[in-house]
């Protein structure tokens, strides 16, 4: 089983649609502990990505990812822009010239993407950021892949780990980003960045398993 470039495009479209749908919810999460712009910023960025999709027909996965990264970089702003841009730019470097990815290749791309986000944002596990959803997801995907799990099962395990990581941000006190200025007052709220990251991986599992 492979992930074909058309499925990559389908994933990005499904994620853009989900962001439009969840825009208000993400902004509400951000209003509680940040500056109430995560939903609007992500939606603006992925709407811009959608406009680029037509010119990408027949391009390889590396080119698709790099285009997504550069588009997000110039349209999202805030902290989410460079972080999600870095995610796709790093993933793109692992997919250069490829029209499809094996599970092992996707796992390596996701790991590179998440390492890029860690470097850019300098956040660690437990800081109440998107890293809390992404790092457990990478680990789950690697373990599943090494155990010879099927593609669709491995993707579900990856998304599940992201979901658990997202929920685990609720009691945490933020140590990075604007939420950190709230100190103890940031506890009791789910992190918006971890939430949009979980959506990204859940969408991948749903679209690529179908």
């Amino acid at each position: 089983m492979q992930i074909h470039r058309d499925q990559i495009v389908a994933w990005l479209k499904a994620y853009a649609n989900l962001l439009s749908e969840k825009k208000e919810y993400l902004t509400e999460l951000d209003a509680a502990i940040g500056d109430a712009d995560h939903g609007a910023n992500m939606d603006r960025g992925f709407q811009a990505v959608m406009k680029k999709m037509d010119e990408l027909s027949n391009q390889d996965i590396g080119t698709i990812f790099k285009t997504v990264g550069m588009t997000l970089l110039s349209t999202v702003g805030g902290a989410g822009g460079p972080l999600y841009a870095t995610f796709f730019l790093q993933a793109g470097m692992k997919a250069t010239g490829k029209m499809e990815l094996s599970l092992a290749e996707w796992s390596a791309a996701l790991e590179a993407a998440v390492n890029g986000v860690k470097m850019r944002g300098k956040a660690e596990l437990g800081d109440k950021t998107m890293i809390d959803a992404l790092v457990p997801a990478v680990q789950a995907l690697k373990t599943a892949q090494e155990n010879g799990t099927s593609l669709s099962e491995a993707l579900q395990q990856c998304a599940h780990a992201a979901e658990e990581g997202m929920k685990a941000t609720i009691p945490l006190v933020a140590r990075k980003g604007r939420a950190s200025y709230l100190g103890e007052r940031s506890a009791g709220h789910q992190d918006p960045g971890a939430t949009s990251s979980y959506y990204l991986l859940q969408t991948a599992a749903d679209v690529w398993s179908a």
Binding site: G77, A79, G80, G81, P82, R120, G121, R178
Partner: peptide
Amino acid sequence: NYTGDVMNFEM
């Protein structure tokens, strides 16, 4: 020194 400003300027 704001997370977003710092990251965008770094890039």
